[in-house]
């Protein structure tokens, strides 16, 4: 995950706390989504950013996961996401996301 984004996640965590924060990802493929999810839960696997060795254990989802989709207004989802939903390998993304969450 981008170092700048790691910094912002950490700042939000300090400001709002774990229970009031959900991280929503828009990564284009499973591996990248998994890495980002790992970064905000277990810690930065590349040991390069502010979350290196910091396990925040945050709730994290990809925008294409059914739990999130159910929460979004259907028209907005159609306008903003549905095209990419068709393009992305959603199954792969979901399985990567689940694999990370299972480690928590």
């Amino acid at each position: 995950m981008d170092l700048e984004n790691q910094k912002r996640v950490l700042e939000y965590y300090e400001q709002y706390g774990k229970d009031d924060l959900v991280i929503l990802l828009g990564a284009a493929e499973g591996e990248a989504a998994g890495l980002a999810a790992e970064t905000v839960t277990l810690g930065d696997p590349t040991y390069a950013g502010p979350l290196a060795g910091v396990s925040l254990g945050l709730d994290v989802y990809h925008i294409c996961e059914p739990e999130v989709k159910a929460e979004v207004d259907e028209a907005v989802y159609d306008e903003q996401i549905s095209m990419m939903e068709m393009v992305l390998d959603v199954d792969d993304i979901i399985s990567e996301m689940n694999a990370i969450r299972e480690q928590l």
Binding site: E79, Q80, I81, S82, M83, M84, V87
Partner: peptide, 10 residues
């Protein structure tokens, strides 16, 4: 004013 979602871009 287009916005940045891939859909809006395309």
């Amino acid at each position: 004013g287009t916005g940045s979602s891939p859909q809006a871009v395309i």
